[in-house]
Amino acid sequence: MNIFRLAGDMTHLASVLVLLLKIHTIKSCAGISLKTQELYALVFATRYLDIFTNYISFYNTIMKLIFLGSSFSIVWYIKRHKIVHRSYDKDQDTFRHWFIVLPCLVLALLINERFTFKEVMWTFSLYLEAVAILPQLVLLQRTRNIDNLTGQYVFLLGAYRALYILNWIYRYFTEDHYIHWITWIAGLVQTLLYADFFYYYFQSWKNNAKLELPA
């Protein structure tokens, strides 16, 4: 494992911890898109189908369990926790799951490395992860006061993707393998979706102003 991959994983982990901190400690999910969280739960459920059959490392298994457990518990918190649920911006979080899930499923059935159930599900999870942030970005744009934790959560998620690209570039030059093109392209699309957010995030940071995305 290289430094970019480790930094990417740690940033991903930090994003989850920031979100759990907001939900568990402040008991608020204001500004957080349940749609995006449900899509992430689906991403991990379909990607880690081989978690118990294909052992890679202790680190790998633990991280998979953390991402599975945290994504499903975040969804549970927003939907079922009495106090947390009250802060959910239901009327603003209007993105339709099916507009995202269906095209990803069709694309995974058409473009994959091998036409087997596990392989198609793995490919589907990559396509879905690439666009799962969209409901969250739409919600951010509609939110007048984006609180610090929500801004940091999205920033950390974007940073995680950017670090993964550096990791792939590093692996390309240091390892002798064929490239998983699907992973690269889906990952690149995913990172580009954050470009606009990054721009306004750094602007607000530079000017010491509150983060706000223009409609």
Partner: peptide, 10 residues
């Protein structure tokens, strides 16, 4: 001889 990269990422 190149082979497929292992799926060892998260």
């Amino acid at each position: 001889e190149k082979d497929q990269a292992p799926k060892d990422e998260l």
